[in-house]
């Protein structure tokens, strides 16, 4: 038993444990007990505020009509302040809601990271999950906070809304000259597709060797057994290379982290350092064809 090193206020677990019967034979069924703790409480209330502010902002746009809210939910958007407002606080209807919602969303993510960290340590684990999560947090911060501050305008940050974030993604790419030519975007997408590939390979390998017990990974890392041996030989015979029960999880964590870190660098360089990735591609001479669109 690991020792509880963190003493928190709100230190309590739910008393009831429930079981999801429909998952029997597929996955573990136990739900709870969930832990609250100070950081959990802070994350919860902070997220509640974020949702509440967003709901008020959306509600104003549809005159608090619930049917209209449902109909227009996919396109309802809280926009950040206009470019003229720079980094100033804006009136509520002109980006103030967005600023407050983003503030509480950011706080939620920070509290959540601390919460995972304290829970990992309290359960005797290394804090690898919060470290991995902080890579995603870095990408979030780059997009929502660091890049807007660097270019001196909250308007650069994504709006809140289902269609809003998709349109922002599209516009951000076009605004900086086509993100397909951004080498960090390329690396990030490579790692993203690579992550899915590794996930499929690892999941399928373990499922294929279930009857030999390869899924007991923590034990297999200490002393590998028949299941892991067969899994390793499968890849060695197929492609001449195999990971071990330990190193496959290093590959996993490395690839998944690279998605966020490379993506964040790609976002941060866009604008202040590289204003147009397509023209960057022209100068690097990697544009196929006659390069008619390249500025000489």
């Amino acid at each position: 038993m690991a020792t509880e090193v963190y003493r928190e206020s709100f230190e309590r677990r739910t008393k009831t444990v429930r079981y999801l019967r429909f998952l029997e034979g597929l996955a573990d069924t136990q739900v709870g007990p969930i832990y609250l703790g100070m950081w959990g409480a802070l994350a919860f209330f902070s997220y509640l505020l974020c949702v509440f502010i967003t709901a008020i902002g959306f509600g104003e746009q549809v005159g608090y009509n619930p049917i209209r809210f449902l109909r227009e939910l996919p396109v309802l958007t809280l926009y950040p302040p206009p470019p003229s407002a720079g980094l100033q606080m804006a009136p509520l209807q002109e980006g103030g809601y967005w600023q407050l919602a983003t503030l509480f969303l950011s706080l939620t993510l920070v509290f959540w990271t601390i919460r995972i960290w304290t829970r990992a340590v309290a359960n005797g684990l290394r804090p690898m999950v919060p470290i991995a999560f902080s890579a995603a947090l870095f990408l979030y911060a780059s997009i929502y906070i660091i890049h807007p501050i660097w270019v001196n305008s909250w308007n650069e940050a994504p709006p809140h809304g289902l269609r809003g974030i998709l349109l922002w993604t599209n516009h951000f790419s076009v605004k900086y000259g086509n993100f397909y030519y951004n080498p960090f975007h390329m690396v990030s997408i490579f790692a993203l597709l690579g992550s899915t590939l590794i996930l499929a390979m690892h999941g399928a390998t373990i499922l294929a060797t279930l009857s030999y017990g390869a899924h007991r990974e923590i034990d297999e890392i200490e002393k590998s057994d028949e299941g892991t041996h067969r899994a390793q030989l499968l890849w060695r015979w197929v492609m001449g290379f195999n990971a071990t029960a330990y190193t496959i999880h290093q590959w996993a964590l490395g690839f998944a982290t690279l998605v966020a870190v490379a993506g964040a660098i790609g976002v941060l360089l866009s604008g202040p350092v590289v204003p147009d990735w397509f023209q960057w591609g022209c100068r690097a001479d990697i544009v196929p064809g006659l390069q008619k669109a390249c500025v000489p």
């Binding site: 038993m1 990992a120 804090p127 690892h202 923590i218 034990d219 330990y246 964590l253």
Partner: peptide
């Protein structure tokens, strides 16, 4: 992938400290 990789790496090679599958379960329930 990131959750799974990080989870296994956080619990791996800590048998001497008594860390097992149960620690991972309790972490996720928590």
């Amino acid at each position: 992938l990131s959750l799974h990789g990080a989870t296994i790496l956080s619990a791996a090679r800590k048998k001497s400290e008594g860390v097992t599958e149960e620690n991972v379960n309790r972490f996720y329930w928590d």
